[in-house]
Simulated scan of single mutants.
Amino acid sequence: MDVIVSRSGGLAGLWVTWHVHVDEQPDRDDWYLLIRELPWEEPLPVPPEPDRYTYRIRCEPHEATLAERQLTGPWRTLVDRVQERSEPERGRPANGSDRTRPPSSRRPRRGC
């Protein structure tokens, strides 16, 4: 299972993406429990907040987009854990106007 966290926004509008392969983690059972407890269907629509971060969290078949202020509880725990376990991939949107698509991942995705 792969967990991909992409952060966009801020003053420069850069993308930063972290990618963790859960099955390669020594505490993978803890990862699975955390991912199962996430309220995938509950995040509210992300209101526009200029110069603030937006997080896109993907774990096939799930995906959630949260504003920086929505990143609390188990969402914050997951993002912190992913950021601790992987090196960030940095990028800028391809045409400067598309801030909704992160750089593509280096490895193919696997489902949850």
Rank of each mutant, 00 (worst) to 15 (best):
R28S: 03
R110H: 13
Q83R: 15
R99M: 12
A67D: 11
S97K: 14
W40I: 01
A64I: 03
C59P: 07
V82H: 00
D98G: 01
G111W: 14
V82S: 02
P50I: 15
E49Y: 12
Y55I: 01
T65E: 11
G111I: 04
T100H: 14
D30T: 12
P102H: 09
R7M: 07
D2A: 03
R7Q: 06
H21E: 12
W31A: 01
T100A: 11
P61E: 00
E63W: 09
A64K: 07
C59E: 04
W18F: 14
D29N: 13
P43C: 08
T72P: 02
V3Q: 01
N95C: 12
E60L: 15
R107Q: 12
V22G: 05
S8C: 12
T54Q: 06
E24H: 13
E42L: 12
D27P: 04
V16A: 08
D80M: 09
A12H: 09
L78N: 03
V82E: 00
S105P: 08
P47Q: 15
L78H: 07
W40T: 00
T77W: 03
P108C: 05
R85W: 12
R28Y: 13
D98M: 03
L38M: 07
R81V: 01
V46L: 12
V82N: 00
E42N: 10
P108Q: 11
T54C: 05
A67G: 14
A64C: 07
H62G: 02
R7V: 09
G111S: 09
N95F: 12
R99N: 14
P102L: 04
T72Y: 04
R69T: 15
E49R: 15
V46E: 11
Y53Q: 14
A67I: 04
V46C: 12
P61I: 02
R58T: 15
L38N: 02
T65P: 07
R85F: 10
V3H: 00
N95K: 13
E42W: 11
G96P: 03
I4Y: 02
R85M: 09
G91Y: 03
P26G: 10
E37I: 07
P102N: 03
D23S: 12
C112L: 13
R101W: 09
Y55V: 04
P45M: 10
D23I: 06
S104N: 10
